[in-house]
Simulated scan of single mutants.
Amino acid sequence: MAGWALCMALLLAALAGAEGESRYEKFLRQHVDYPRTPSLAAHRYCETMLARRRVTAPGRPCKPSNTFVHAPAEDLVAACTQTPDATGFHSTSVPMDLTACRLRGGDTRPPCAYRARQVQHHVRVACLNGLPVHLAGTHAPAA
């Protein structure tokens, strides 16, 4: 019984912390893994990281896709100093190492199974007060 109470207390504390985070902090939690977490098997990276970072959770639908950037947060903040494109998004000046996670199959209910793909792309972000707050997409370097 004490173990259950401790588990519930930790869960409530985690949820309270998630609600109190800024949009930039949420962006970092959901999208930045630098340096890349090395100990994970490649085929389990997405499932493990999305659960560890509280992007997916029991009782919530699976997120269709998520991208982890394996570069320092400062490099993404620097993107906010770039001139925005016609849609208002800012792109990183250089390609970055990424892991793109895509939901496998059509079922959006847990357990969530993802396919991981390693790429080097530019990252497009929405910025607020000079900080990235939304990963709007990625694009391959120009040939």
Score class of each variant (00 low, 15 high):
residue 102 R to I: 10
residue 73 A to N: 03
residue 112 C to S: 06
residue 38 P to H: 06
residue 11 L to H: 01
residue 68 F to Q: 11
residue 55 V to Q: 08
residue 14 A to P: 01
residue 69 V to K: 05
residue 15 L to D: 04
residue 25 E to F: 00
residue 13 A to V: 08
residue 97 D to G: 04
residue 89 F to N: 12
residue 20 G to S: 15
residue 65 S to N: 14
residue 62 C to W: 13
residue 88 G to K: 10
residue 94 V to S: 15
residue 96 M to W: 06
residue 64 P to V: 11
residue 90 H to L: 04
residue 18 A to D: 15
residue 79 A to T: 00
residue 26 K to A: 13
residue 71 A to T: 12
residue 89 F to Q: 12
residue 75 D to A: 13
residue 69 V to M: 08
residue 110 P to A: 02
residue 30 Q to I: 04
residue 7 C to G: 12
residue 92 T to F: 04
residue 15 L to V: 06
residue 34 Y to E: 06
residue 115 R to F: 12
residue 12 L to H: 14
residue 85 D to M: 01
residue 14 A to R: 10
residue 65 S to F: 15
residue 66 N to L: 07
residue 94 V to Q: 15
residue 58 P to D: 12
residue 68 F to P: 06
residue 64 P to H: 12
residue 54 R to A: 13
residue 30 Q to C: 05
residue 33 D to S: 05
residue 85 D to K: 00
residue 22 S to P: 02
residue 109 R to P: 00
residue 89 F to L: 12
residue 99 T to Y: 07
residue 97 D to M: 06
residue 43 H to T: 10
residue 84 P to K: 02
residue 56 T to G: 08
residue 21 E to K: 13
residue 59 G to P: 07
residue 49 M to H: 03
residue 24 Y to R: 09
residue 11 L to V: 10
residue 34 Y to N: 02
residue 51 A to P: 04
residue 112 C to H: 07
residue 80 C to L: 01
residue 12 L to Y: 10
residue 33 D to V: 01
residue 36 R to G: 11
residue 94 V to D: 14
residue 31 H to E: 04
residue 57 A to E: 05
residue 107 D to T: 11
residue 39 S to G: 15
residue 58 P to L: 08
residue 11 L to F: 08
residue 21 E to W: 09
residue 44 R to A: 06
residue 107 D to R: 13
residue 35 P to A: 06
residue 97 D to R: 14
residue 108 T to M: 15
residue 114 Y to F: 07
residue 79 A to E: 02
residue 106 G to W: 07
residue 85 D to S: 02
residue 30 Q to N: 12
residue 9 A to W: 09
residue 41 A to K: 15
residue 95 P to S: 05
residue 18 A to W: 13
residue 18 A to F: 13
residue 21 E to Q: 14
residue 63 K to L: 02
residue 54 R to Y: 13
residue 77 V to H: 05
residue 69 V to S: 03
residue 85 D to Y: 01
residue 62 C to M: 09
residue 17 G to P: 05
residue 64 P to G: 09
residue 53 R to W: 08
residue 98 L to S: 03
residue 70 H to T: 14
residue 18 A to K: 14
residue 19 E to L: 11
residue 77 V to W: 02
residue 77 V to F: 06
residue 69 V to A: 13
residue 85 D to F: 04
residue 38 P to R: 15
residue 11 L to S: 05
residue 101 C to H: 08
residue 40 L to M: 07
residue 78 A to E: 07
residue 25 E to W: 01
residue 75 D to V: 11
residue 33 D to W: 00
residue 93 S to F: 10
residue 63 K to D: 00
residue 35 P to R: 10
residue 88 G to N: 09
residue 31 H to Y: 03
residue 68 F to V: 05
residue 41 A to S: 09
residue 8 M to L: 15
residue 72 P to R: 15
residue 110 P to G: 00
residue 28 L to N: 00
residue 83 T to P: 14
residue 24 Y to S: 05
